[in-house]
Amino acid sequence: MSAVAAHFSYWVTLFLMIAGLYILIARGNLMKKLIGLGVFQTSVYLLYIAPGKLVGGTAPIVAAGFTTYSNPLPHVLILTAIVVGVATLALGLAITVRIREAYGTIEEDEILERDRTGER
């Protein structure tokens, strides 16, 4: 297998990770930031799941006639991560809603501006 094909899954992961990171840093809107965080999270799912795959294998459910299975451990870890991820997303959104109530905006720079001038 050539180097490109062998590492393609990592590069897809990296692209998603960087896109998430970029949204997270460059965008001032808190909702958009949370979505960027979500993209980053899904890239991590891929980072864990992709190395567990074996070509010619099947899902890790033991049955007669199959001998090769993909690795079950990353699947377990990522199941936990997905559920925890949605919990943190819910908490982040709740905080965003509260910020919106207190400041009237969810744009980062406007919030900082209001903090500086002491106006609520």
Binding site: G38, Y45, G52, K53, A59, Y69, S70, L79, V86, L93
Partner: peptide, 27 residues
């Protein structure tokens, strides 16, 4: 496609379902 059927089911239900509902509500 990567043989992670349990994870895919959870991602479709939680990632695409619950997250979207939460995001729309917050929106």
């Amino acid at each position: 496609a990567l043989d992670a059927v349990d994870v895919a089911m959870t991602e479709a239900a939680v990632g695409a379902g619950v997250s979207t509902v939460l995001l729309l509500g917050a929106l």
